[in-house]
Design a protein around this nucleic acid. Sequence first.
DNA 1: TGAATTCCGACCAAACAACTCGGGTATCCA
DNA 2: TGGATACCCGAGTTGTTTGGTCGGAATTCA
Lengths: 142, 142
Amino acid sequence: MKLSAKVEYGVRAMAILAFYYQSGPLPLREIAEQESISLKFLEQIFPNFRRSGLIISVRGSRGGYLLSRPPAEIKVGDIVRAVDGPITPVNCLSDNGSDPCCHRREGCLTRQVWEKLRDKINDVLDDVSLDELIDLKPTHIT
Amino acid sequence: MKLSAKVEYGVRAMAILAFYYQSGPLPLREIAEQESISLKFLEQIFPNFRRSGLIISVRGSRGGYLLSRPPAEIKVGDIVRAVDGPITPVNCLSDNGSDPCCHRREGCLTRQVWEKLRDKINDVLDDVSLDELIDLKPTHIT
DNA sequence: TGAATTCCGACCAAACAACTCGGGTATCCA
DNA sequence: TGGATACCCGAGTTGTTTGGTCGGAATTCA
């Protein structure tokens, strides 16, 4: 029951991107340095974000990445699914209908547990947005 | 974000055991046949249940396994943790304090997400007990 | 042009998953 | 007592995933 290191790094990287929102494109090298993550590893993660429409890439010199929408509108769940794909706690919840998990007597009863689990995981992750991960909001002001 | 096949098989096997609760020891071979699971693979899973105190083993001829307490008192979460160990969505939530995930600026903010996720997963799994997986309860009777 | 940057695909080693196999050892029934 | 039954244990195996690295091509700005 683990998320991948890619997801962990990806969330941290996106938090940085949220912190510098509206400051122009931020190159991966900067993120890599700030978070002590291998640049090459980040290069492998970010195309997923771009393909999912979470970020916009600017190529060439002085290029980099920026969020495609405000940090409040990007949820941790978006990031997780962009990197790891849809969340499926057990294989028989995948979309390929070839799994025989429901051909047994109590198959569909256990399936309900896994479905509930999957939904709750998505709920938790979709309840937190990027702006909550950075420290911008005036939480201490009355 | 996947549970292992061991957990999947383990829950199914425990459901069978719940179904035959109070019918004397049930040999692994029977469970293996009913669920089309390799006997040798089951033999590898069940010691975890015994060590966690979920089942009692009866050795010798006409031996087998039986639940150590009523199905209503065994949660799916117990089964999952017995097989896969404690649920830790990311490595920095493990008990070894050597992980540097909190030495960074926003480290502890993302950590809160993972902690919340871990707690919710446990909540869901601990909310379902074995008797809900089998079809004994008179749900259709007014 | 040249430096900075994204982008792309191949490659690689280590770990893990999902089993299998072979043999113990304890226990019971006849 | 002697099988037969069943649990117990650890090593081996095969394939996939993970967590990266490496080299280079395309693009853009100064």
